[in-house]
Every structure is written in C-alpha cells, then in structure tokens.
C-alpha cells in the first residue's frame, strides 16, 4: 500500500458563529498538494467566511485547520501568511493611495517579516524585476506608477491577484476574482490563473460562473448554509440533484 500523501490543508469540523448566526456548520475537507479546488455555493453559503477563518481574519468557534499536519487554527493572520497562505478579497481591498508597483513590492516577504532590518540590511533592495514581471503577467505594467485607487474594476481585480502572488505563497485563496467580469476578461483571467498555477502548491478558487469553474477546477467543494453538501469532479457535482437544487437554483442571483 502506498501511503496517501499528506494534504496541504486539512479542515475538520470547522464551525463559525456570528451571535446566533451559524456561518460555518461542521465544514470538513482537504486541499491536496497540487490541486486547483473550486469552492462554490449560493450567496451566503459561507465561502468567504471559510476563507476568512482559514486566513485568520476571523477566529473559529470550533474545529481545526491544519497545514501540512500542524495545527494552525489559532494562529494570527500574519503568521498564517508567513507560512504561505495568501488570499484575495471579494470586495477588492487594495492599498489605494499607493502605486500599483508599491502594492506588489510591499508583499516581499524578505522585508515585511523583518521591517526594521529592511532599513539597515546591506544589499537590501527591491526585486523590481520580479515585481515588473508579475505586473506584466496580469497586464498591468502600463499602470505601474498609477495609484491603485484609480484603477478600473477589472484592473483592480488583477492587481489583487498580483499582490497575493507577490509574497510567493504556497496556498492561494481567490475569492470571486472574476466577479463582474465579461466573457473576454474571464478568459484572460483563466489564462492568468493557469499560468501561475505551477508556482503554487494549491489554489482554491471561489467562483459562481459554472463554465469557468468547471473548466479550471480539478475538484469542486459545494457549500450551502454553512455546510459542505457535495465534493467531487465538476461533471459529477453538477449532476448531483442536491447541488442543482441548492446552487443552480439561485444561479440567476449572481452578480
């Protein structure tokens, strides 16, 4: 027997309450090394809350999250980020008064983990080449010196991704990166996600567009009312009557 390789992230019985409202209700699933996991579910299903709990923005009410076997449930978000867990925000949160280039440069782990040493260290310098390469890949190099707050919607979404990637994460959560994009922009985004995929251990993509998520994901986890209601390959999941009822039934509510 070959031992099953350890999951990158293991979520077990995760529960999150907001004064009486149960946002996560016993969520358990693994994120395997190398996979692109699609996380879907109707509005209010708890997808963003899950990302917020895993990335340490909210504390879990109960349950555990382990990263490569070690318990990270109680770690503050900056330590989770240092372990290599990155995320984007559904409601774009760029550093609006900083330039596009600065938004990417600030994520450099060499300095943000030792902010004072970055002042005095010999040979400390910005990795401009890497930052510009990243901006090139998300097609923002022309906007390099623009203030992030002045970007158009689609550009801002792409900068969110570039900034999350700039820290060199192992696991990346993308919370509805394609929200509000048209068909062409979505295809460009899909190409971007595919292009950086080899550099990461795993990606979790939250997305409402069935075609896009089916195309990109190896596996889907479906949530509804704070619970996981189905997991599996995209074709199988969308054939599951519970999923059709819970998720596809409200598809027209997408933004």
């Amino acid at each position: 027997m070959i031992a099953k390789s350890e999951p990158l992230l293991a979520i077990r019985d995760l529960n999150k309450q907001f004064r009486g409202l149960t946002a996560l209700d016993g969520v358990s699933f693994d994120i395997a090394q190398g996979e692109l996991l699609g996380l879907i579910g109707p509005n209010g299903a708890g997808k963003s809350v899950l990302v917020n709990v895993v990335s340490g923005i909210y504390g879990a009410t109960a349950g555990t999250v382990s990263f490569l076997g070690s318990d990270i449930t109680r770690l503050p978000s900056y330590q989770l980020a240092r372990l290599g867990i990155a995320r984007t925000f559904q409601n774009i949160r760029l550093f609006g008064r900083m330039t596009v280039l600065e938004n990417v440069l600030v994520a450099d782990k060499r300095y943000l983990t030792r902010p004072f040493r970055s002042l005095f260290a010999k040979g400390a310098h910005d990795d401009l080449a890497a930052a510009e390469d990243l901006l090139e890949r998300v097609d923002l190099i022309e906007k390099r010196d623009a203030l992030a707050g002045t970007l158009a919607y689609g550009e801002a979404r792409r900068l969110e991704i570039a900034r999350a990637l700039a820290g060199g994460p192992r696991l990346l959560f993308l919370d509805e990166p394609a929200a509000g994009m048209n068909e062409r922009e979505m295809q460009e985004l899909a190409a971007v996600i595919r292009s950086f995929r080899p550099a990461l251990d795993a990606i979790v993509l939250i997305e409402h567009d069935v075609a896009l998520i089916s195309e990109l994901s190896d596996r889907l986890v479906v949530m509804d009312s704070g619970k996981v209601i189905a997991t599996g390959k995209p074709v199988d999941v969308f054939a599951d009557p519970r999923v059709v009822e819970a998720y596809l039934g409200v598809e027209e509510c997408d933004d």
Binding site: Y78, A81, R87, R93, F95, G96, A107, L112, G167
Partner: peptide
C-alpha cells in the same frame, strides 16, 4: 491604508 489586509500579507 488597511491593517487587516496588511496582516493577511504577513
């Protein structure tokens, strides 16, 4: 600018 995002970056 945004301390929550700053923390989520490390």
């Amino acid at each position: 600018e945004d301390e929550l995002v700053a923390a989520s970056m490390g």
